[in-house]
């Protein structure tokens, strides 16, 4: 009988472990932690991640009015951290950025920086130099496009 009770107890614990002890709730959404592992599978380092791609971005001709609008927005939202020369302030200087990077990449990055910093290998290594994360400055698509036009102007577009 003693043995019987013992085995029952044992079985009881076993059933406990085997049955519904696991927490079925999904774990919390991962944070945008600085040390997130870059997911290389579906990330395109040329295009970046976001709304923009070759097909929805027209770069024909240069629009001076748009560039001027971009300059004024960037004075408020960007100039504290970026010079228009190749000199680094908080972030890298903007000179040459339209040649260095593909247009969709820039537009995606400036409208959607957090996920890209976590995934883009070059941004990751640049972060090691800058130590500050490029902030999300809440740009509308239109603002972003205007700033890109301004960057083209900096790089000599006429």
């Amino acid at each position: 009988m003693k043995f019987f009770l013992k085995s029952i107890t044992l079985l009881f614990f076993l059933t406990c472990i085997i049955t519904s002890c696991s927490d079925k709730k999904s774990s919390a959404t991962p944070t945008m932690g600085e040390n997130a592992v870059p997911a290389t599978d579906d990330y395109d380092p040329n295009r970046g991640e976001g709304k923009f791609n070759e097909s929805n971005l027209s770069l024909d001709g240069f629009d001076m009015a748009m560039a001027e609008k971009g300059e004024s927005i960037s004075n408020t939202k960007c100039a504290s951290c970026h010079k228009i020369t190749d000199e680094r302030l908080v972030g890298p200087g903007w000179a040459g950025v339209t040649q260095r990077r593909q247009a969709p990449w820039v537009l995606n990055f400036i409208t959607n920086p957090d996920p890209m910093i976590d995934k883009d290998p070059e941004l990751q290594s640049q972060l090691e130099l800058c130590l500050v994360r490029m902030p999300n400055q809440n740009l509308s698509e239109d603002d972003a496009r205007s700033i890109y036009e301004y960057m083209r102007k900096i790089d000599g577009a006429k």
Partner: peptide
């Protein structure tokens, strides 16, 4: 029996 009673631990 135990299984039934104890599900949910």
């Amino acid at each position: 029996l135990i299984f039934i009673i104890s599900s949910g631990c």
